[in-house]
Nucleic acid binder design. Structure first.
Lengths: 179, 179
DNA sequence: TATAAACATGTAATTATTAACATGTTTATG
DNA sequence: CATAAACATGTTAATAATTACATGTTTATA
């Protein structure tokens, strides 16, 4: 069981719906899935090569007009199988989720430290903005019940992200008041 | 401003209190800070070398008895400065926090998918266990107000972790009921 | 007391990730 | 219509992180 590097599954998951080019995939990380995951485009191209070498996807280079050359990737039956295997596999333990701000706080010992409140305020501002953004995403992406039911996983995690930000903000506000 | 690799700051932050060996540092990641961050011990040794080369810490090798040889690291004024700079620096934007389960859900489209509930249940179980664990940590680590006030950052983030897990569990429970 | 398990301390190799470099193509705009 | 900006597509180099390898020391236990 290959672990850790999840990018292959992401690419498979995206390509599964329809053949895509490297650039199409890159753009996915600027919108939809970009809310939950990030990678650099250089990584995408590397991984695509590996997936081809591995037989999980097939490439098809076409010439559009006489200038543009595009390589589309489509998933193979083997790739589909690999994707399914991952999607429904169980995790036996939770990964730690690394948050730089949380880390900083760990090293701020003194409750009376005057800079503490500043940091909390700044963080609160960032998370409020994020919360706002997520709320508008929800309205935008899921305007009706049919879309919700056909993209239920996405709907769930977007709601989760919103609740998480609400928790974050409320925690920070409480912390600010407490000092 | 060096970004990204936060391990140097963690090591500085830990060494700041008292000189420590590589192994001492490794152990920190199994208890206290291990709740919020993880690294492999091989990475610690590499980073310690770099910090020494960079003048942020100094090493001092001593022979205990006639067998054991230990190298203690202590922070230099330059290291302290670097640590302080990081601790009170502002972040301009939030990093994405990568969660494999959330990623999986993104690719599960169909609300009626029978395996969805299984996955949600399994996750719920994991987070309930984690929540329990964190609650007992809180009691253990912060038995009284004095300790709280002298380790306030740590107190705050432990509370945050607890609230986050509560959110996670409640989200999952709602999701399970919704399908 | 032999032997296994856990402690303690690192190095080397592999893989993943990010940053930097390159290069040609449309599209907008002054 | 010249030119800058953004689009599109990659490769190469550098850094970070994980995995595997190595080796000697206590401590527990059969």
């Amino acid at each position: 069981m290959a672990q850790k590097n999840l990018l292959p599954y992401i690419l498979l998951g995206l390509i599964e719906n329809e053949p895509m080019t490297g650039y199409d995939l890159k753009k996915e990380f600027e919108t939809e899935i970009g809310e939950f995951w990030s990678v650099k485009h250089s990584q995408i191209y590397l991984e695509l090569k590996r997936l081809v070498a591995n037989g999980d996807i097939e490439s098809n280079t076409g010439y559009f007009g006489n200038k543009i050359e595009k390589t589309y990737y489509k998933i193979t039956p083997q790739g589909t199988k690999s994707l399914e295997g991952w999607k429904y596999s169980y995790e036996d333990q939770l990964a730690i989720n690394k948050d730089e701000f949380v880390l900083k706080l760990y090293f701020i010992k003194d409750k009376k430290d005057p800079r503490l409140k500043e940091l909390l305020n700044e963080q609160s501002h960032l998370h409020k903005k994020k919360l706002e953004h997520l709320n508008s995403r929800l309205k935008e992406v899921f305007p009706n019940k049919k879309i919700i039911d056909n993209n239920y996983g996405h709907y769930l995690i977007l709601n989760h992200a919103i609740k998480r930000e609400m928790e974050y903000v409320s925690w920070l506000e409480d912390a600010i008041l407490s000092i």
